[in-house]
Design a protein around this nucleic acid. Sequence first.
DNA 1: GTCGT
DNA 2: CGGGATGCGC
DNA 3: ACGACGGCGCATCCCG
Length: 308
Amino acid sequence: MGTIQKNLGLKHKYMAYTTAAGALAAYPKRIPSGAVAQKELDGVGQKIGLKIQEILDTGKLKKLDQYNSDPKIVTLNLLCRVTGVGPAAARKWIDSGVKTIEDLKKEKLNHHQEIGVKYFEDFEKRIPRSEMQEIKNIVKTSISQLDQLITVKICGSYRRGSESSGDVDVLITHPKFTNEKKEQKDTFDLIKRIVDRLEKIKFLTDHLANGTQQYMGVCKIPKEGAIARRIDIKLFPKESFYTALLHFTGSGEHNRQLSCIAINKGFKLSEFSITPVGSTGVEGAPIPVQSEKEIYDILGIPFRKPSE
DNA sequence: GTCGT
DNA sequence: CGGGATGCGC
DNA sequence: ACGACGGCGCATCCCG
């Protein structure tokens, strides 16, 4: 239900379903009824409570079956699996008769969508940890040849120790790239220079978005039969690096927990900074941190490695 | 869709 | 041509 | 009853 709401453009309903599903999955006991679910679980209200009851009673959900038997919804869900295609574009094409990915290839696509179609199958395949390690070696080696001072971290589920990942999330920083001196010569166009280099060694094969702070593109280990992978490279000023590292290592659930703890203890934690928040609600200056552990220290909770 | 105001 | 709005991904 | 729900970088569209 969540995915459908998202593809319809109802992003907050999607979030509502996601939180409810998360609460349900995290609940240690069996849920005997929709009413109990609504009472016990945060994020489950009346409507989802009724749906839980229906599933308990009949084993299915009429509303969902209706959606899944609606050809327009089925096509919507298909088209939205192409990166670069969202609710607005998908709806437009469905109205003009597009039904399959093959149909989509004949339409006028922007660059991002072209790449999305080109690698449609590849992008849905998971990346084994062994391949992630190869990718990490290529990226780290190549970047350190450019400038030894650059710090490179592969985040996401890989950093949490997962056996497979959905994409490659690279975080970088440079001691001379600070909030004060974002324009300095050493770090100016740092991402562009990295991208040039990775392109030259035939690692990056296509680009989706290529800015000064953020790159999104496609990489492939340069050997026969390799699968195309989505890769993002993000540059953060060094003041933000450890909060960013924490944030982009996740998981999403872990981030929500930390954020909640932060608020309760009078702080605001984001990918950019950790700041004190006064009792009046006024936000103070960011607290400088030089490691992930220091953030845990500020929050007054024991440090846990990404893999824990 | 759910929650807080 | 340029500044703002929109779509999208994360 | 009603608004918030994360919010920002990049590509592209829109409009003056």
